[in-house]
Design a binder for these strands. Structure first.
Length: 502
RNA sequence: GCUCCGAUAGUGUAGCUCGGCCAAUCAUGCGGGGCUCUCAAUCCCGUGACUCGGGUUCAAAUCCCGAUCGGAGCACCA
């Protein structure tokens, strides 16, 4: 009854519906080359594919497409990092597959295709073949008979040829109007050993992505492939193999190129170089677009997931700012992040007529528990605040008392206390009349040295002592922003925090 | 050069499959205001888009054609 009026679709929440057959069990996969940790781009692949699997009660496979020991060799730690990152994202794979474990299987199918007359061993030099291909002409090896090809293939496997001497090509249509589809390479010879010790130098003939992925997707029963549109042509190439073998290609969806303002263009190998030359401190440097960096900064997995899902899977190229991610994250962490004072570029200030007392700001504005900050006759102010003050200015030290600037000149900037204690003011419901700034006591054992590593710069200053108890937590430094307390050195009374966002 | 995609406000996104309910959704950003002992959060209010040109139609963001712009592929990388 009410239903017929509500025919309109639910306000879609990002992801378009998947085309799923009656009673079909969906299987999706994310297939990275573990030549570095998951970047923001990989995160999209993990989140979206896992989300579809979840929505349809299907399976999510994590497959390491680690079949390039030479150009972009896998990094052993990255295998572990990917697993860990998937877990963080709530996308624990139902199955984890290593392509490098299946090389013999790929050989089987290669042989099958050779027998079918659909693959041939090509001895052309790279540019030589390119000339034939661009002209739409068959190379001299294309028409070799099955027996010859089989024999040459065996020679390849038996290390009879050197690297670069021979490749196995899939026969498509050498006159195809799209040059990208003409007789593509499926296997090449690589003499560099594979980084995985269990693989090492066992193989010298390695499959290329199009072949490896085509076979794997079929064997794993992948029903839907969702990935970036840079792999759109891959589908067209792989369909030849599927047709020859009588298989049915999975349904596909592609998203457009993703560019992030804050990071510019990035590639795993470029980051790798920058880490090697010391530009970045590591794969979780706050300036780097990896999931590990975002995690370290305190960006929650819920925020990342929602952000990625909201993007949907449009084929439009997008250029986005992380502001939206930060806004989502802020809503999540704000209610659970305790507040602290942190002054950057600190300036020590002498207070005349200082009352020795304890300020008791709330731990969080929504709650009533208080933290305690003893104050003596000296405090640290933010350099930014101090720099803007001139003699005669009046302001409120947050949760303490009001002061008037006597003289901000170095070496001893001086202020004097005016009025009564703020705590008393509060009880008489009097609002502060002046600008409010935060502060940190300049008393032994009552402050910590704090370093905040942010994407744009490193901030150094002092923070209140209570920060030491927040190791691993996200907190808000008032008037500064949200940070995650990354390490606490009790003996040296120092803390390192990673900046999340304002 | 050849081929394939795409084009909704500053940014991202919904709507496009099956033209009318779209003087176009939501989020973020931005502007203004309320609240607040944080420049945060929160609450109000506001801002702003169908790339252009033709065609089909009673009716087009939605269909067709062309142009323009953007992206991708044409690797013995993934």
């Amino acid at each position: 009854m009410i239903e017929e009026i509500g025919e309109r679709k639910e306000p879609a929440t990002g992801l378009p519906d998947l085309e799923v057959g009656e009673g079909e069990k969906v299987v999706l996969r994310f297939a990275p080359n573990p030549n570095g940790p998951a970047t923001i781009g990989s995160v999209r692949g993990i989140v979206v594919n896992a989300e579809y699997a979840r929505r349809h009660g299907g399976e999510f496979v994590l497959r390491f497409d680690d079949t390039d020991p030479k150009t972009k060799p896998p990094m052993l730690e990255a295998y572990v990092w990917y697993l860990d990152d998937c877990e963080y994202l709530g996308a624990v794979p139902d199955l984890v597959v290593y392509a490098s474990d299946h090389i013999p299987k790929y050989y089987e199918y290669a042989e099958k295709l050779i027998m079918l007359g659909k693959a041939y061993v090509c001895f052309c030099k790279r540019d030589e073949f390119k000339r034939y291909k661009d002209a739409g002409e068959a190379c001299p090896h294309r028409d070799a008979d099955v027996g010859t090809n089989l024999e040459c293939w065996k020679c390849m496997l038996n290390r009879a040829y050197a690297e670069g001497e021979a490749v196995l090509r899939i026969k498509t249509d050498i006159t195809h109007r799209d040059p990208a589809l003409r007789d593509w390479a499926a296997f090449r010879i690589v003499e560099t050993p594979h980084p995985r010790p269990e693989i090492g130098d066992r193989f010298c003939v390695w499959p290329l992505l199009d072949f490896e992925s085509a076979i794997e997707d079929h064997l794993l029963g992948i029903t839907h492939i969702i990935r970036g549109k840079d792999l759109m042509d891959s589908e067209l190439r792989q369909r030849y193999v599927y047709d020859y073998l009588g298989w049915q290609y999975p349904k596909t969806m592609h998203w457009g190129r993703m560019k992030i303002h804050e990071f510019g263009k990035f590639s795993t190998s470029a980051i790798s170089r920058a880490i090697a030359d010391g530009t970045y401190t590591g794969w979780d440097d706050p300036r780097v677009p990896t999931l590990r960096a975002l995690r370290r900064r305190g960006i929650s997995s819920e925020a990342i997931r929602k952000f990625m899902i909201d993007l949907g899977v449009g084929e439009t190229d997008i250029s986005l700012s992380l502001d939206t991610l930060y806004a989502i994250n802020r809503k999540i962490i704000d209610p659970v992040s305790n507040r602290y004072f942190f002054v950057w570029d600190p300036v020590a200030v002498e207070i005349r007529d200082a009352a020795r007392m304890v300020a008791t700001p709330k731990q969080h504005p929504d709650r009533d528990d208080l933290r305690e900050i003893p104050a003596g006759s000296r405090v640290f102010l933010c350099g930014e605040d101090a720099g803007s003050l001139t003699s005669g200015d009046r302001l409120r030290l947050k949760n303490l008392y009001d002061i008037e600037i006597v003289d901000m000149e170095l070496p001893t900037p001086t202020v004097k206390r005016i009025g009564t204690a703020a705590q008393e003011w509060c009880t008489i419901e009097e609002k502060p009349r002046y600008r409010i700034i935060h502060w940190v006591p300049d008393m032994p054992d009552e402050y910590l040295r704090v370093v905040v590593r942010a994407p744009d710069q490193v901030y150094e200053g002092f923070g209140e002592a209570g920060i030491a108890s927040e190791l691993g937590n996200t907190v808000q430094f008032e008037r500064f922003g949200f940070v995650r307390i990354d390490s606490v050195d009790v003996r040296n009374r120092s803390v390192v925090a990673y900046f999340a966002h304002r």
